[in-house]
Design a protein around this nucleic acid. Structure first.
Lengths: 354, 354
DNA sequence: CTGTTAGCGCCTTCAG
DNA sequence: CTGAAGGCGCTAACAG
């Protein structure tokens, strides 16, 4: 017995787990043919006119034996894996991508799929590698997700595979893409202020960004539209990058040089935090002295005091839709699909009851 | 020819993608046997005494034909998949789990593995289902990750599979677990204050939590130890749950009833934000009037003004280590493995230069 | 180094 | 409903 081990693991590095029960085992145990068992396993009893009782019997045996089909065998045979690949630049960038993932995950579950993720960390070489890897594994489709830059260049290998862009677009719009409707969001934000009677001396905080990240431009365009439609005037833009410290600093110097505005539209929630800090340092109260409205609808929005009203990105819905589009192969419906931002009310706009 | 289609897609729903090049194609093209090609593919040329030149030739053909091995076939044959399953309760809960995932992901890459993730949303039924699903797919191991409760009951199906617990432990400590060393972190936090001469009137903000989430207890224990060792006294604990509003409210009422403390130890960064808000409302300056130190080292810590000094959880390192332990099958090294928290300096403690 | 043979577990004709 | 047969693409043992 002591000498046995060397012999019985002749199968290279193969794990010696006790052989799993196979479909043949089930068939034998139930006294039917492997063929029949297979049909029952795949719920194709009707086509083959298999009686309900034998089907039931076989299923009982499957339960009893705790039979589980070998996914790898199925995969090999069917050349598909009930798996969706996700290529993402930064999975770890906060709740942002996480929520997209959650949406995708639950939708995938609905269709009996699982997600396989690869994080590229913005490295093109790593991206190529991960795409290959995913394709090798015969994923049924790929979701290309990005958090930072919104305009991307889709890897060639994906051109002829089922692919959906999530939170980004490709210059040649020949692939379905799921995006937030920032322009409509901008309109909604502005209309919310206008509805509260804030028609003048309203400023945007944050810069428009460049073409590769058009969210800012779109939001601002929507804001301008709404003001124009209401015959009101957007006072201007206080330029700063979209983060806490820059916003804090920019608003502080701006307040030194100017006056107290009636309302501020912050291009994201982090900017809002900076704005809150700068206003607090001046002893200005929100919303009594200044109203604030924001974008993103992240946790941070609800942490501010008072909570900032924010147009929430439909992240989970976007992730969800990405999977649906991918699996329903509505590849005819190419081009961007825009989901609306939803106003998440806080108490940062005058007249609001939080 | 017009009648052909009905016949040639007899293979059910099988996708009709032009047949990929197979290992046999490569072998033929290179004028060697399939066997040889296989050995070369798997870098086992030495064992089989295959000449360098034929190996090179075959590899050249592989490149030329853009040959990629069929992972499903390999998987079936080898009964392993170079894939790691991740079971997580809430992937979408902020940067927290995301960073764990990032660490795991890069480590997996190092070993040529990919991650497959299942989010249970805290639902036991869904958890069971996902575990089955992952096991069906023959993942080489599973990382069981949790964000909320730290003490979990590992699904039975995982007992006899390679498994690593990430950020949690199982009551029967028979499975490797990766955890942050909160007690040492607590000591470090306290020592940082003590080193700044803050020896009295130091309060903890946040409650200890229950046994299922021992982070609070551990941090507090560490804090007490350090104070005891320094012959100083921890003044007490201001109880509140670990979130912004509760902390803000608790500290506000506490300040009403008491006095201005010399320093506050916040049990996480969200509590710090609440504390900052309450102090600001009283016109108290940080760190001039009150010093603050915190735990987690999240983005939020760097957003505060001044940045709060925080003991950062080693999240990516934890994710990384989880994969390493899993793949190196150091399953002998069972029981918890604790990684240290690192002080991330802000400017919230008196005498610190931010 | 080659060729053969065998099989991983499953799915799908096709002829009973 | 059955049984036989073929094959997905790759790996491995074995006898040349």
């Amino acid at each position: 017995v002591a000498a046995a081990p060397a012999g019985n693991r002749g199968e290279g590095t193969l794990v010696a787990r006790s052989r799993r029960t196979t479909l043949l085992d089930v068939a034998k145990q139930a006294g039917v043919s492997r063929t029949t068992a297979s049909y029952i396993l795949n719920d194709r009893t009707e086509q083959m006119r298999i009686s309900e009782e034998t089907a039931a019997r076989v299923r009982a045996v499957m339960d009893e034996l705790e039979y589980r089909p070998n996914r790898n065998a199925q995969n090999l045979r069917r050349a598909q894996t009930k798996t969706i690949g996700v290529i993402s630049d930064f999975v770890a960038s906060g709740a942002f991508s996480s929520q997209l993932l959650r949406g995708a995950n639950t939708a995938a579950r609905r269709h009996d799929h699982l997600l396989m993720i690869g994080e590229t960390l913005g490295d093109p070489a790593l991206e190529t590698l991960l795409v290959e890897e995913l394709l090798d594994r015969q994923v049924d489709g790929i979701i290309y997700l990005t958090v930072s830059a919104s305009t991307v260049h889709l890897p060639d290998r994906l051109r002829d595979r089922p692919t959906v862009l999530l939170n980004c677009v490709d210059p040649n719009l020949d692939v379905p893409a799921i995006l937030p409707d920032d322009e409509a969001g901008g309109r909604a934000a502005a209309e919310h202020l206008l509805g509260a009677g804030l028609r003048r001396d309203v400023w945007v905080v944050g810069d428009a960004g460049d073409d590769s990240a058009p969210a800012g431009q779109n939001r601002i365009r929507g804001i301008r539209q709404a003001f124009r439609d209401a015959d009101a005037d957007l006072a201007g833009i206080i330029e700063c990058s979209w983060d806490v410290q820059p916003a804090r600093a920019a608003l502080a110097t701006w307040l030194d040089a100017r006056h107290v505005p009636s309302a501020l539209i912050c291009l994201n929630d982090r900017v809002s935090l900076g704005v809150y800090q700068a206003l607090a340092a001046r002893g200005l109260a929100i919303p009594r002295d200044v109203s604030v409205i924001s974008f993103d609808g992240s946790d941070l929005a609800s942490w501010l005091d008072p909570q900032v009203s924010s147009l929430a990105l439909p992240l989970t819905a976007m992730g969800d839709m990405a999977v649906e589009v991918l699996l329903n192969a509505d590849h005819h419906a190419v081009g961007p699909l825009m989901l609306p931002l939803l106003l998440q009310r806080g108490g940062s706009v005058i007249g609001e009851d939080s």
